[in-house]
């Protein structure tokens, strides 16, 4: 193929694409107007179900870049049965995740044994100031509504997947 015919066939491919874009619309998703639906497994943002957290610190110490900050104290709760001893419960004072540091590796969600942390596929939380990416526990709690239902446990497991706790 000579230079000029080569050029023309090459331009033919791009021209086809131009015609396709003009008639059928672009291949790309026009973001602010159209939003892509992330798959249920998408790691968008971490949601916190505060009632389940026992401030065991497992997530904070397993986080590879230490972006979780937890403070808590022990509190006395009324006894379950009348006449019993008051129970000690862990109260969460502070649970912050710094999304400026987070690597989205998902280790915290995996290690949480009490089902307090969940992945939500939401992704629209960018901030003009990096300091605002530090989400506190109330902000993390708001994401709970967007958490998708659990997938079934690994194939062949007899236990049914549990329900995601809803506020």
């Amino acid at each position: 193929m000579g230079l000029v015919p080569g050029l023309i066939t090459g331009l033919g491919v791009t021209l086809k694409e131009v015609v396709k874009t003009a008639t059928k619309g672009a291949e790309t998703v026009q973001y602010p107007h159209v939003k892509e639906d992330p798959p249920p497994r998408a790691r968008g943002v971490i949601a916190l179900h505060e009632e389940n957290c026992t401030s065991c610190m497992l997530c904070a110490r397993e986080c590879p870049d230490w972006c979780i900050y937890i403070e808590g104290h022990k509190d006395l709760a009324p006894p379950r049965r009348a006449g019993g001893k008051p129970r000690t419960v862990n109260k969460l004072d502070r649970f912050d995740i710094d999304y400026g540091l987070c690597m989205y590796c998902g280790i915290c969600v995996e290690v949480c044994p009490f089902e307090a942390l969940f992945w939500s596929p939401e992704y629209e939380y960018s901030e003009p100031r990096i300091a605002d990416l530090l989400h506190d526990k109330s902000r993390l709690g708001q994401w709970m509504d967007t958490v998708p239902e659990f997938e079934a446990y690994e194939g062949g497991a007899e236990t049914k997947a549990k329900k995601v706790p809803r506020p």
Partner: peptide, 8 residues
Amino acid sequence: ILMTGQPI
């Protein structure tokens, strides 16, 4: 078409 067979 765009590259492999393209003389340019």
